[in-house]
Nucleic acid binder design. Structure first.
Length: 300
DNA sequence: GGCCAGGTGTACC
DNA sequence: GGTACACATGGC
């Protein structure tokens, strides 16, 4: 199958800390949607997709990749301040994805105080040990579905810990058990307005404001959700509040208003930009802005 | 070896 | 309301 795309950076998107189970091999990306294996290759505005599935879910792939987003229209809603312009210029084809809510929720429960490489390792181990094998091309390494909540609910916590989950094993087990007891919860959440959906997600053990916002943004398509992790906090402090030390309240008010209706999309650009172009600069205490891209205060 | 990672829950004030 | 700390594990 061949799709036509405009301003789409497949590699940056699949490698931007939203999803953890897509792998690059020789310029192609391989991953699983549902129980189907897909391989993607981008050449300019051509996006080529292969699968081993007999009845490929192309609509699901299209939905996952958000091929119908009008990115230029989304960019147009961003504030036109210097940090935002730099962040978009650094990677103009960066996209959000639409993930399966359960895999997204489970993955981000594992994410707390872990590096992205480690989250990849944990999700890979979970899939390998508790997922189902998927049909892959001959000669490919085996790949697996992400294990269902029911499956994980029936696993000893020690077996989860053996996947290097650490203290998060108890959270994942608890969440899996809640979902097994009441399997419709994630579907019901999709029907709620964002604030209520966030509250509902935060009922799961190990899920606070930040992880709830990740799931809202990456799985439920709520572009008003604005996850603030250590990197985004760094970006906000370095780029928008240099020489000041804003409190959490101030930042919350700022992120809720400054970035417009697609704030969550803007957040992903800031996250990617601060990680790839600016780097770590004294988190938390009065950091200087990066010398290379010094900008006038946007006066938030 | 020390610091940090796409944080959260709990115990305290 | 707020702040301090424990929680596992690995990368750098």
């Amino acid at each position: 199958m061949r799709f036509s795309v405009v301003e789409y950076d497949l590699g940056a998107t699949l490698d931007s800390g939203q999803v953890f189970r897509w792998r690059e091999r020789d310029g192609t990306w391989e991953g699983i949607l549902g129980n189907q294996w897909f391989r993607l290759r981008q050449a300019g505005s051509d996006l080529e997709a292969d699968t081993t599935a007999a009845d490929p879910a192309w609509d699901r792939l299209r939905h996952f990749l958000r091929l119908d987003d009008d990115l230029a229209a989304i960019h147009a809603t961003f504030p036109s301040d210097a940090p935002m312009r730099s962040a978009v210029a650094a990677c103009p084809g960066l996209r959000l994805l639409n993930q399966d809510p359960w895999e997204c929720l489970a993955s981000f429960i594992l994410s707390s105080t872990k590096q992205i490489v480690q989250i990849r390792q944990c999700t890979a181990l979970l899939a390998e040990r508790f997922g189902e094998p998927v049909t892959v091309p001959v000669g490919n390494p085996p790949m697996f579905t992400f294990p269902t909540a029911e499956r994980l609910a029936g696993v000893e916590e020690s077996a989860l810990r053996a996947c290097k989950l650490g203290f998060r094993a108890r959270y994942l087990a608890g969440t899996a058990q809640m979902l097994t007891a009441d399997p419709g919860q994630l579907d019901s959440i999709a029907q709620l307005p964002t604030a209520a959906a966030r509250e509902a997600l935060m009922e799961f053990p190990g899920v606070g404001r930040k992880i709830a916002d990740c799931v809202l943004l990456f799985a439920y398509g709520r572009q008003d959700a604005f996850p603030v992790d250590v990197w985004v906090l760094r970006a906000l402090r370095n780029l928008y509040f240099p020489n000041r030390n804003p409190g959490v309240r101030t930042l919350e008010r700022f992120t809720a208003t400054h970035f417009g209706p697609n704030a969550g999309y803007a957040q992903q650009y800031l996250f990617h930009y601060i990680r790839t172009h600016v780097g770590r600069e004294r988190p938390g205490r009065d950091p200087r802005p990066p010398s290379r891209r010094r900008s006038a205060n946007p006066s938030p």
